[in-house]
């Protein structure tokens, strides 16, 4: 049974060249051993690596567009999206990585925005629920959620849809049992699970035919 839920799927590796090159730029100078012993710590840190302290301008690439936001290092990607970029489609549920309401895609992989620091999302491609539709044309997963009534209150829905899109792309929605297992990180307190499952499975079936 396990092998049905966890087939040896060929998960594509993420495109992370952008992140690595960003890291290299930020890498700094290896002058530590030569640092004078009495120089203050703050100066020494800036001497060999990039330090972000207090409110700082950073650039985030969200839904194909670059945005500059001024944030402290403690600001999560979730709060940066909602409070600074006005992208309130991504929801804050538990804020502790337990509910999945904040699910976004980072470099194509589903990720929890509440446990991601915005400073660590620089140089990565972020997709939110607002980035799925093409103009007025809904993404097939959005259309399937409407068709199957995959929601009641709707609060978990953006996270469910983002997770569903990734689940199908990963090849983890080939059976009902497998889709249930691989959607288990998204909780729905209204209990719309049967309809959410129907929506995810329909898109998976469409895409395997198409």
């Amino acid at each position: 049974m396990l092998s049905d839920l966890f087939p040896p799927a060929g998960t594509p590796q993420p495109e992370d060249g952008s992140r690595r090159s960003f890291m290299k730029q930020a890498g700094g100078i290896l002058g530590l051993a030569l640092a004078p012993p009495l120089v203050s710590q703050a100066e020494r840190l800036t001497a060999y690596s990039k330090v972000i302290q207090g409110a700082t301008d950073i650039t985030l690439r969200v839904n194909g567009q670059a945005h500059t936001v001024r944030i402290e290092p403690r600001v999560t990607l979730l709060d940066a999206l909602r409070e600074r970029l006005d992208l309130t489609g991504t929801k804050k549920g538990c804020d502790h990585g337990q509910c999945g309401a904040c699910t976004v895609h980072v470099n194509g992989r589903r990720t929890l925005a509440c446990l991601t620091l915005a400073v660590m999302a620089q140089g990565k491609e972020i997709t939110t629920i607002e980035g799925l539709a093409k103009g007025d044309q809904l993404h097939p997963m959005q259309a399937a959620f409407l068709k199957h009534d995959g929601l009641q209150c709707g609060y978990c829905t953006p996270g469910q849809i983002m997770s569903g899109v990734a689940c199908v792309q990963e090849g983890h929605a080939t059976t009902d049992a497998q889709a249930r297992e691989w959607m288990s990180g998204n909780l729905c307190r209204c209990g719309a699970y049967p309809n959410i499952l129907a929506a995810v499975r329909e898109v998976a079936t469409q895409q395997s035919k198409g």
Partner: peptide, 18 residues
Amino acid sequence: MNDFSYTQAATAKEATTL
């Protein structure tokens, strides 16, 4: 969360020294 400073380390030596 209380605020903190954030630093990227480029090497293990840099990380351990920080």
